[in-house]
């Protein structure tokens, strides 16, 4: 006989109260990352070593700037989820774990805001 309440069964969130959300978001960003990775590789290969003016001209195209914003957002979300799993797997001291999980969020947001601002600035003409 199950001891779970009817509401608990319907919500399906389990003891961590998160359900399969982490898994699902990890997969959604993984699928998005495949085309976005190919886009990023193509862009970097075609821009690497080019003049600063060429970078400005390329990123002033909305499609390129939007593609780069999507790439950074999806990749950063994905890697934040991944690092969260790594921390939870290997760090067992509660205090250190919480600090590292906070640091994980700070790190990904800092990179995301920096890259996002740079992309927008370049997109709007440098």
């Amino acid at each position: 006989m199950s001891m779970r309440t009817p509401l608990g069964k319907v919500l399906g969130l389990g003891s961590a109260r998160e359900g399969t959300e982490h898994f699902w978001r990890q997969r959604v960003t993984a699928v998005a990352n495949v085309p976005l990775t190919l886009f990023l590789v193509w862009l970097v290969v075609s821009l690497f070593g080019k003049s600063h003016q060429t970078i400005l001209d390329t990123l002033s195209s909305p499609l390129i700037a939007i593609g780069l914003l999507l790439t950074m957002a999806s990749m950063l979300y994905h890697m934040r989820l991944g690092m969260q799993t790594i921390i939870e797997d290997y760090i067992h001291a509660e205090g250190v774990k919480i600090l590292l999980l906070m640091g994980n969020t700070f790190f990904t947001f800092a990179i995301g805001i920096s890259a996002g601002f740079a992309i927008l600035k370049l997109g709007f003409g440098g």
């Binding site: 990123l59 780069l68 740079a118 992309i119």
Partner: peptide, 8 residues
């Protein structure tokens, strides 16, 4: 990110 910020 560094490369993008550098370009900006």
């Amino acid at each position: 990110a560094w490369w993008l910020v550098a370009a900006a």
